[in-house]
Design a protein around this nucleic acid. Structure first.
Lengths: 205, 205
DNA sequence: AAGATGCTGTGATTTGAGTCACAGTACAGC
DNA sequence: GCTGTACTGTGACTCAAATCACAGCATCTT
């Protein structure tokens, strides 16, 4: 997988620098990329696969914030990286995932020298900020059924598939709800012909 | 009110530029500084007073995200400013408030030229991001009583006073709850000797 | 002073969602 | 095949919070 095709907007000097200094790394599905409280030493750009950014709650739930796909980067990593601070969130590979790790020491210099990097960082901030706003909207204003619909839609968008391979329990964790509630709501959606339920799989219609 | 004392970290060249190009403006308590969907033409730095950043919900509530005090700036304004995009949030003066308005055309240049500005912007991003994470934690994981306690504490911190001058209805709006629920919870807190209730005023103990 | 308006307190009821209990089903491994 | 494990479906119950209904107060207006 050639990262230059995924980030075509980067200017030549920047490409060279990344070529020289960055490390490409693979995470297997389920592997934790970053955990709460961990110190950050590099910024991660996603090349392939899907990364789940979530917040761990006191009693074990994994409250989903958003997914990162190819061409995206974690805003938290960037901000933390710049100030070498601790992260407040968890990142996990949902599928086998390739990332490009850029050491934080380079960040300052890159921001100053390469306009295309600077713009990429700003765009990343804005997009992640907007995603957080959407999450807040959902938990603050919507009922579980609406949140579930939103969740399924986003999952499909992020993976590009109509088939969502996951258990009801996993969805409940992501939404900080309970399995029974999700099962019931899914059943209702099936009756409304919005989807079809299978074992470990939901088929959107 | 001299803004240079509030932003002592700004370097001389930057101070000069702001002196020349920025406009100082006063908003009266209750005045809307920015509304959802509005196009942004300048970034606002708070000099004095307090600005409430909130999200309007479909049926009229004002869901509180955070307050901005002297020395702080709105991250959303900055991000939107840089890309001249629409805002997703509302900003309102909670008290009479002085702000310094910096035209967006200058942003790019300032980011490139002045390290102190660049650092200020990055710091602002990070702080606001963290506040949003805290908001998500609260609505996702906490019950109303805990959220109310957090709300009162934050209000006191932001205003620097032990007296919170507001109605139960206003608190309910900020937390996207209902007046009766808040009244009852406040009563319970009063019985636990955490505060004392007055008309349009809550006294923290 | 009388009335109007807005704020607060409190019971009764409803509702969305979480919890408990348990049954049925699909699949993996032996 | 049989068996254990993980996933799913459903009824019954509980609980937090929203809603409804109203009454008492404080403050302002005229």
């Amino acid at each position: 997988m050639n990262w230059k095709e995924i980030f075509p907007q980067f200017e030549p000097g920047l490409v060279e620098l990344i070529e020289k200094e960055a490390v490409q790394r693979t995470f297997l599905a389920g592997e934790i990329i970053m955990r709460t409280g961990q110190y950050i030493k590099s910024t991660a750009l996603v090349l392939e696969g899907r990364v789940k950014i979530y917040r761990e709650n006191p009693d074990g739930g994994e409250f989903l914030m958003y997914y990162l796909g190819p061409g995206q980067a974690c805003a938290v990593t960037m901000i933390c990286a710049i100030q070498s601070q601790q992260s407040e969130i968890m990142a996990k590979a949902e599928e086998d995932t390739e990332v490009l790790m850029i050491p934080i020491q380079l960040m300052d210099d890159m921001m100053n020298k390469y306009k295309s990097w600077y713009q990429f960082v700003i765009m990343t901030y804005r997009n992640r900020f907007d995603e957080l706003l959407a999450v807040i909207d959902n938990v603050a204003f919507r009922n579980m059924d609406e949140r579930l619909e939103f969740y399924l839609k986003r999952h499909a968008d992020a993976s590009g598939k109509k088939l969502i391979e996951t258990s009801h329990q996993q969805i409940a964790d992501d939404l900080n709800s309970s399995r029974e509630v999700i099962s019931r709501l899914l059943k209702k959606m099936e009756q409304r012909n919005l989807l079809k339920l299978h074992r470990n799989m939901i088929e959107l219609l």
